[in-house]
Protein backbone atom coordinates (compact mmCIF):
# COMPACT_ATOMS: atom_id res chain seq x y z
CA UNK A 1 0.00 0.00 0.00
CA UNK A 2 1.38 3.39 -0.97
CA UNK A 3 1.94 6.12 1.60
CA UNK A 4 -0.83 8.23 0.07
CA UNK A 5 -3.34 5.38 0.19
CA UNK A 6 -2.31 4.64 3.76
CA UNK A 7 -2.83 8.25 4.73
CA UNK A 8 -6.19 8.18 2.99
CA UNK A 9 -7.24 5.14 5.05
CA UNK A 10 -5.97 6.72 8.26
CA UNK A 11 -7.99 9.91 7.67
CA UNK A 12 -11.12 7.86 6.91
CA UNK A 13 -10.58 5.94 10.15
CA UNK A 14 -10.02 9.15 12.11
CA UNK A 15 -13.32 10.56 10.87
CA UNK A 16 -15.42 7.41 11.09
CA UNK A 17 -13.91 5.89 14.25
CA UNK A 18 -14.98 8.39 16.92
CA UNK A 19 -18.41 8.89 15.33
CA UNK A 20 -19.08 5.16 15.18
CA UNK A 21 -17.91 4.84 18.80
CA UNK A 22 -20.43 7.52 19.80
CA UNK A 23 -23.21 5.78 17.87
CA UNK A 24 -22.48 2.28 19.18
CA UNK A 25 -21.37 2.94 22.77
CA UNK A 26 -24.79 3.01 24.48
CA UNK A 27 -26.10 -0.01 22.59
CA UNK A 28 -22.95 -2.00 23.34
CA UNK A 29 -23.21 -1.18 27.03
CA UNK A 30 -26.90 -2.07 27.06
CA UNK A 31 -26.35 -5.48 25.51
CA UNK A 32 -23.17 -6.30 27.45
CA UNK A 33 -24.69 -5.59 30.86
CA UNK A 34 -27.83 -7.59 30.11
CA UNK A 35 -25.45 -10.56 30.69
CA UNK A 36 -24.18 -9.04 33.96
CA UNK A 37 -24.21 -11.29 37.02
CA UNK A 38 -24.62 -8.61 39.69
CA UNK A 39 -27.82 -6.73 40.45
CA UNK A 40 -26.66 -3.30 39.22
CA UNK A 41 -25.56 -3.00 35.56
CA UNK A 42 -22.40 -0.95 36.18
CA UNK A 43 -18.73 -1.79 35.66
CA UNK A 44 -16.77 -3.85 36.38
CA UNK A 45 -18.58 -6.47 34.30
CA UNK A 46 -19.15 -9.82 36.00
CA UNK A 47 -20.49 -12.80 34.17
CA UNK A 48 -21.67 -13.66 31.60
CA UNK A 49 -24.97 -14.87 32.98
CA UNK A 50 -28.42 -15.48 31.52
CA UNK A 51 -30.10 -14.95 34.89
CA UNK A 52 -31.80 -11.69 33.91
CA UNK A 53 -33.20 -13.16 30.72
CA UNK A 54 -34.71 -16.00 32.76
CA UNK A 55 -36.12 -13.45 35.18
CA UNK A 56 -37.54 -11.47 32.28
CA UNK A 57 -39.28 -14.50 30.75
CA UNK A 58 -40.82 -15.24 34.15
CA UNK A 59 -42.15 -11.70 34.46
CA UNK A 60 -45.74 -11.69 33.23
CA UNK A 61 -45.79 -7.92 32.78
CA UNK A 62 -43.07 -8.26 30.16
CA UNK A 63 -44.42 -11.33 28.37
CA UNK A 64 -47.96 -9.87 28.24
CA UNK A 65 -46.63 -6.56 26.98
CA UNK A 66 -44.55 -8.35 24.33
CA UNK A 67 -47.73 -9.97 23.00
CA UNK A 68 -49.58 -6.65 23.08
CA UNK A 69 -46.75 -4.97 21.17
CA UNK A 70 -46.56 -7.79 18.64
CA UNK A 71 -50.32 -7.76 17.97
CA UNK A 72 -50.56 -3.97 17.69
CA UNK A 73 -47.41 -3.87 15.56
CA UNK A 74 -48.43 -6.60 13.11
CA UNK A 75 -52.04 -5.47 12.65
CA UNK A 76 -51.40 -1.72 12.49
CA UNK A 77 -48.46 -2.20 10.08
CA UNK A 78 -50.49 -4.49 7.83
CA UNK A 79 -53.31 -1.95 7.72
CA UNK A 80 -50.97 1.02 7.19
CA UNK A 81 -49.19 -0.83 4.35
CA UNK A 82 -52.48 -1.82 2.70
CA UNK A 83 -53.91 1.72 2.85
CA UNK A 84 -50.59 3.18 1.68
CA UNK A 85 -50.27 0.79 -1.27
CA UNK A 86 -53.83 1.47 -2.45
CA UNK A 87 -53.30 5.23 -2.13
CA UNK A 88 -49.94 5.07 -3.95
CA UNK A 89 -51.56 3.07 -6.72
CA UNK A 90 -54.51 5.47 -7.03
CA UNK A 91 -52.42 8.63 -7.05
CA UNK A 92 -49.56 7.36 -9.23
CA UNK A 93 -51.44 5.43 -11.91
CA UNK A 94 -54.56 7.56 -12.28
CA UNK A 95 -55.01 11.22 -13.10
CA UNK A 96 -56.54 12.50 -9.91
CA UNK A 97 -57.25 16.24 -9.81
CA UNK A 98 -55.59 17.97 -6.85
CA UNK A 99 -53.04 15.17 -6.54
CA UNK A 100 -50.42 17.44 -4.89
CA UNK A 101 -52.90 18.48 -2.23
CA UNK A 102 -53.88 14.88 -1.45
CA UNK A 103 -50.21 13.85 -1.26
CA UNK A 104 -49.67 16.76 1.11
CA UNK A 105 -52.50 15.58 3.34
CA UNK A 106 -51.09 12.05 3.46
CA UNK A 107 -47.58 13.29 4.31
CA UNK A 108 -48.82 15.86 6.83
CA UNK A 109 -48.55 13.70 10.01
CA UNK A 110 -44.76 13.48 9.42
CA UNK A 111 -44.49 17.16 10.33
CA UNK A 112 -46.33 16.78 13.65
CA UNK A 113 -44.72 15.40 16.80
CA UNK A 114 -45.96 12.02 18.04
CA UNK A 115 -46.87 13.70 21.32
CA UNK A 116 -49.22 16.16 19.60
CA UNK A 117 -50.81 13.38 17.52
CA UNK A 118 -51.30 11.42 20.74
CA UNK A 119 -52.84 14.38 22.58
CA UNK A 120 -55.16 14.97 19.60
CA UNK A 121 -56.35 11.36 19.59
CA UNK A 122 -56.77 11.45 23.38
CA UNK A 123 -59.00 14.54 23.12
CA UNK A 124 -60.95 13.24 20.11
CA UNK A 125 -61.45 9.72 21.50
CA UNK A 126 -62.67 10.95 24.87
CA UNK A 127 -65.02 13.39 23.11
CA UNK A 128 -66.72 10.61 21.11
CA UNK A 129 -66.44 8.00 23.88
CA UNK A 130 -63.80 5.64 22.50
CA UNK A 131 -62.14 3.91 25.47
CA UNK A 132 -58.40 3.76 25.99
CA UNK A 133 -57.37 0.35 24.69
CA UNK A 134 -55.00 -1.54 22.44
CA UNK A 135 -57.36 -0.79 19.54
CA UNK A 136 -56.97 2.94 20.22
CA UNK A 137 -53.18 2.51 20.25
CA UNK A 138 -53.38 0.58 16.97
CA UNK A 139 -55.43 3.33 15.32
CA UNK A 140 -52.80 5.84 16.43
CA UNK A 141 -49.96 3.70 15.08
CA UNK A 142 -51.63 3.49 11.66
CA UNK A 143 -51.74 7.30 11.65
CA UNK A 144 -48.01 7.49 12.47
CA UNK A 145 -46.97 4.86 9.93
CA UNK A 146 -49.26 5.63 7.00
CA UNK A 147 -47.11 8.53 5.67
CA UNK A 148 -43.90 6.49 5.98
CA UNK A 149 -45.40 3.45 4.26
CA UNK A 150 -46.90 5.71 1.59
CA UNK A 151 -43.53 7.36 0.96
CA UNK A 152 -41.79 4.00 0.56
CA UNK A 153 -44.38 2.51 -1.84
CA UNK A 154 -45.11 5.74 -3.73
CA UNK A 155 -41.41 6.10 -4.50
CA UNK A 156 -41.52 2.78 -6.30
CA UNK A 157 -44.30 3.88 -8.67
CA UNK A 158 -41.82 5.79 -10.80
CA UNK A 159 -42.07 6.45 -14.55
CA UNK A 160 -39.52 3.68 -15.05
CA UNK A 161 -41.99 1.11 -13.78
CA UNK A 162 -44.81 2.53 -15.90
CA UNK A 163 -42.54 2.14 -18.96
CA UNK A 164 -41.82 -1.49 -18.07
CA UNK A 165 -45.55 -2.17 -17.75
CA UNK A 166 -46.17 -0.49 -21.09
CA UNK A 167 -43.37 -2.53 -22.66
CA UNK A 168 -44.98 -5.76 -21.42
CA UNK A 169 -48.32 -4.62 -22.87
CA UNK A 170 -46.66 -3.84 -26.21
CA UNK A 171 -45.16 -7.31 -26.23
CA UNK A 172 -48.66 -8.76 -25.96
CA UNK A 173 -49.11 -9.34 -22.22
CA UNK A 174 -52.70 -9.19 -20.98
CA UNK A 175 -53.58 -6.87 -18.08
CA UNK A 176 -53.56 -9.66 -15.45
CA UNK A 177 -50.20 -10.82 -16.83
CA UNK A 178 -48.80 -7.30 -16.63
CA UNK A 179 -50.03 -7.06 -13.05
CA UNK A 180 -48.72 -10.45 -11.90
CA UNK A 181 -45.48 -10.64 -13.88
CA UNK A 182 -44.36 -6.99 -13.83
CA UNK A 183 -46.16 -4.80 -11.31
CA UNK A 184 -46.23 -7.12 -8.30
CA UNK A 185 -42.63 -8.36 -8.54
CA UNK A 186 -41.41 -4.78 -8.87
CA UNK A 187 -43.55 -3.61 -5.95
CA UNK A 188 -42.89 -6.52 -3.60
CA UNK A 189 -39.69 -5.12 -2.01
CA UNK A 190 -41.35 -1.74 -1.48
CA UNK A 191 -44.44 -3.27 0.13
CA UNK A 192 -42.30 -5.51 2.33
CA UNK A 193 -40.13 -2.50 3.17
CA UNK A 194 -43.14 -0.37 4.09
CA UNK A 195 -44.49 -3.14 6.31
CA UNK A 196 -41.17 -3.69 8.12
CA UNK A 197 -40.57 0.02 8.59
CA UNK A 198 -44.05 0.41 10.11
CA UNK A 199 -43.48 -2.65 12.26
CA UNK A 200 -40.29 -1.30 13.85
CA UNK A 201 -41.81 2.13 14.45
CA UNK A 202 -44.90 0.63 16.06
CA UNK A 203 -42.85 -1.84 18.12
CA UNK A 204 -40.68 1.00 19.45
CA UNK A 205 -43.33 3.66 19.91
CA UNK A 206 -43.93 5.03 23.40
CA UNK A 207 -45.91 8.22 23.78
CA UNK A 208 -49.03 7.35 21.77
CA UNK A 209 -49.18 3.94 23.45
CA UNK A 210 -48.68 5.62 26.84
CA UNK A 211 -51.50 8.11 26.29
CA UNK A 212 -54.00 5.71 24.67
CA UNK A 213 -53.57 2.42 26.55
CA UNK A 214 -55.17 1.64 29.89
CA UNK A 215 -54.66 -1.86 31.27
CA UNK A 216 -52.88 -3.48 28.37
CA UNK A 217 -49.58 -1.61 27.97
CA UNK A 218 -47.15 -2.27 25.13
CA UNK A 219 -43.53 -3.23 25.75
CA UNK A 220 -42.00 0.30 25.63
CA UNK A 221 -44.59 1.47 28.18
CA UNK A 222 -43.71 -1.40 30.54
CA UNK A 223 -39.98 -0.73 30.12
CA UNK A 224 -40.69 2.90 30.93
CA UNK A 225 -42.35 1.72 34.18
CA UNK A 226 -39.33 -0.45 34.98
CA UNK A 227 -37.04 2.59 34.74
CA UNK A 228 -38.47 3.98 37.98
CA UNK A 229 -36.48 1.33 39.85
CA UNK A 230 -33.27 2.80 38.43
CA UNK A 231 -30.52 0.84 36.69
CA UNK A 232 -31.46 -2.82 36.60
CA UNK A 233 -30.05 -5.68 34.48
CA UNK A 234 -33.57 -6.94 33.83
CA UNK A 235 -34.31 -3.66 32.06
CA UNK A 236 -31.13 -4.28 30.04
CA UNK A 237 -32.42 -7.72 29.08
CA UNK A 238 -35.84 -6.36 28.04
CA UNK A 239 -34.15 -3.49 26.17
CA UNK A 240 -31.87 -5.93 24.36
CA UNK A 241 -34.92 -7.96 23.31
CA UNK A 242 -36.61 -4.84 21.92
CA UNK A 243 -33.41 -3.81 20.16
CA UNK A 244 -32.87 -7.26 18.65
CA UNK A 245 -36.36 -7.43 17.14
CA UNK A 246 -36.05 -3.90 15.71
CA UNK A 247 -32.60 -4.54 14.30
CA UNK A 248 -33.68 -7.73 12.55
CA UNK A 249 -36.68 -5.95 11.04
CA UNK A 250 -34.46 -2.97 10.18
CA UNK A 251 -31.85 -5.13 8.44
CA UNK A 252 -34.47 -7.01 6.43
CA UNK A 253 -35.96 -3.63 5.47
CA UNK A 254 -32.56 -2.36 4.37
CA UNK A 255 -31.93 -5.52 2.36
CA UNK A 256 -35.33 -5.27 0.68
CA UNK A 257 -34.67 -1.69 -0.37
CA UNK A 258 -31.04 -2.44 -1.14
CA UNK A 259 -31.89 -5.25 -3.55
CA UNK A 260 -34.23 -2.88 -5.28
CA UNK A 261 -31.49 -0.25 -5.54
CA UNK A 262 -29.06 -2.75 -7.02
CA UNK A 263 -31.57 -3.89 -9.59
CA UNK A 264 -32.17 -0.30 -10.59
CA UNK A 265 -28.46 0.19 -11.16
CA UNK A 266 -28.22 -2.98 -13.22
CA UNK A 267 -31.41 -2.24 -15.17
Amino acid sequence: MSAAALRQHATTGLILGPLLLFVYLPVAVLVLFSFHEGSVPVPPFEGPSLEWYREMLDDERITDATWNSAIVGLLSSALATLLATLAAWGLARHRVPGRRLLEGLLFMPLAVSYLVIGVGLLVAFSAVGIEKSLVAVGIGHVVLNLPLAFAVVYGQFDPEQARLEQAARDLGASEPQVFLRVTVPLLRPAILGAFLLSLTFSWDEFVVAFLLSAFDPTLPVVIWGMLRTGLNPQTNAAGTLVFLVSVVAGIVFELAVWRRGRRERLG
Partner: peptide, 18 residues
Protein backbone atom coordinates in the same frame (compact mmCIF):
# COMPACT_ATOMS: atom_id res chain seq x y z
CA UNK B 1 -23.42 3.54 10.85
CA UNK B 2 -27.13 3.83 11.59
CA UNK B 3 -27.87 0.38 13.02
CA UNK B 4 -28.60 1.70 16.56
CA UNK B 5 -31.17 3.97 14.88
CA UNK B 6 -33.50 0.98 15.17
CA UNK B 7 -33.50 1.04 18.98
CA UNK B 8 -36.65 2.18 20.73
CA UNK B 9 -36.20 5.69 22.09
CA UNK B 10 -37.11 4.52 25.59
CA UNK B 11 -34.37 1.88 25.43
CA UNK B 12 -31.91 4.29 23.84
CA UNK B 13 -32.31 6.86 26.63
CA UNK B 14 -31.93 4.14 29.25
CA UNK B 15 -28.79 2.94 27.46
CA UNK B 16 -27.32 6.45 27.68
CA UNK B 17 -28.11 6.49 31.38
CA UNK B 18 -26.00 3.33 31.75
Amino acid sequence: AVLPFWTSYVVRSYAWLL
